[in-house]
Design a protein around this nucleic acid. Sequence first.
DNA 1: GTGAAAGCGCTAACAC
DNA 2: GTGTTAGCGCTTTCAC
Lengths: 348, 348
Amino acid sequence: MDRTGNRKGVTLKDVAAAAKVSRATAARALNSYGYVGDDTAVRVLEVADSLGYRANRVAQALRRGKLPLIGFLPGDIQNPFFARIAHDLEAELRKHGHNLVIASSEESVAQERELLESLRSLSVRGFILAPTSASDNQHIVNLAKDGAPIVLIDRVAENVRCDSVVVDNEGGAREAMEYLIANGHRRIALLRDESRIFTAQERFAGYRNALKAHGIGLDESLVGVSRSTVEHAIEATIRLFSRRDRPTALFTVDSLMTQGALLALRSMGLAIPRDVSLVGFDDFDLATFTDPQITVVAQPIAELGPRAAQLLIERLDGKKVAPRHVRFPTRLVVRGSVAPVAKKRLKG
Amino acid sequence: MDRTGNRKGVTLKDVAAAAKVSRATAARALNSYGYVGDDTAVRVLEVADSLGYRANRVAQALRRGKLPLIGFLPGDIQNPFFARIAHDLEAELRKHGHNLVIASSEESVAQERELLESLRSLSVRGFILAPTSASDNQHIVNLAKDGAPIVLIDRVAENVRCDSVVVDNEGGAREAMEYLIANGHRRIALLRDESRIFTAQERFAGYRNALKAHGIGLDESLVGVSRSTVEHAIEATIRLFSRRDRPTALFTVDSLMTQGALLALRSMGLAIPRDVSLVGFDDFDLATFTDPQITVVAQPIAELGPRAAQLLIERLDGKKVAPRHVRFPTRLVVRGSVAPVAKKRLKG
DNA sequence: GTGAAAGCGCTAACAC
DNA sequence: GTGTTAGCGCTTTCAC
């Protein structure tokens, strides 16, 4: 019974013995480096194959320093946004012989810190992470200082010198708001997640800036804070809309929240867009199922993962340049969840 | 600049030197085994702490045989079903000091085989996988024969002796069909995925058995085969319903297909449940957003991951018992997407 | 109680 | 071209 992970526990030593060469020569043949006689090389390869030899990557890693492993720390693997990114990262990194270790921080700084420690002692070669906090991140700063290759994805962390791949959160949020304002809305509610999260900050900035640009005062009571789950968003939406002077529109900062808002508004008997106009950040399958379909700020999600993987691979290959910060534009996808507020007044 | 993953590259040797003990003693103190004097132990621990020592798990693994890593091979990490399971597995395994390496087979046997090889040479301690094929799985049989701890999840593979955690697919499908039949439906279409997939086989069996039990002949032209994505399901649904003698009902075997069917039926101008009744296997967020809400066969998804993790951990702890096969029951959640066919005839 | 020493499987100088 | 050898960082007999 083999418990070493190697079928029959065949090691380089066995291959070398069977091929009647030294371990060094066997290694050279197997990894094709250095000088090896053609016939010797062929023989070693054949023997290795017939013995079912598989290199022990742990031993290789101990020698070379690192395991062909990349750690991915998303905010929440269950969020379809991160699930998609995980998928793309895995596919891209596999091409380069790396496996992905996924450890979800679940939006907890403490958990993120622990997971990072655990992955460091695992000697992973690099990290792709979506920091849970934009500012409480000394652990990431240290990691970067120690020279670990890191690519930040979706979210940037202050003072961390490393590559990053994000979208234009402020611009996207502003565009959504401009659209609502152009439709005559003034009392626009915002459903956002906790302010330590980078994207929350930027999207909030877009909300604020759009209001300001149009001379609309910021009413803090119109801003709801929620965790990024359907359940929490339902509660938060109900709180926002359980008041006499209801907002006429709602902007939600991610797809799970948008879904929660949809459910909450329905349960309150508020029709979209007749009673409330809605725009969500991040597109989602559901957005075209509902009636009306939901207007959203779409992110180029298919590009985020592959790009991050590529940046990291370059670092692993030794590329020494200043940190690169990629920022993708977003796109407002107008569907049917926004109505002009003016019309309602005329009708009412 | 440290490139070993260890902050400042502090090794056991450094700790031992600083604490003026041998490496053996330092190891004993750090891992609390064997005899170590109390004061010595305390001193070592303090020194280790002040030096920022972190054990090199690769070296430990080389010595002990395995990395504290579990490989998870879902059919498709983007399917919310598997994303949820990945999350639960990761949380559970973390409690036991293990990290999860996720590698999606994307429903390709070849890819599954490659990933398994790659994970084996990584010396992961165990595997949790949803085999892409119920029968084409010699690679899994071999893995099990070599003594690797494996837990099959969601799907079983023939001839593989190992633990498994699945749901009652046949029973769930049959219950859904019984419900449709009780509502007077006879021409019931099935949208299923490729037949090499275990769940597809079982759910199809439930479909077939229910028809048979009620003396309804199996009409192969009512069975559509599709990949498990929204896009593929749309096409397949359109094919099924683009005929004069349209089915009066549709049973879809997973949530992505159900979503595709919803979109397709809408695009064809067919109303649910007026024109077509619908039941889907696997519940999903969207199911309660649509109008009407969708009737589904719900799986106890929250239990699958933790249970699988637990079975695996027991194996890693050396538990030697016959393979255990856990099968959870499903539950028909009646919502509003099924109407009696009789009514339609009366009205028509 | 503690230390010396062997060795996990592999790679890479360095000899020849 | 090929072999010898040292050693990655750690654990674990076996002495003392």
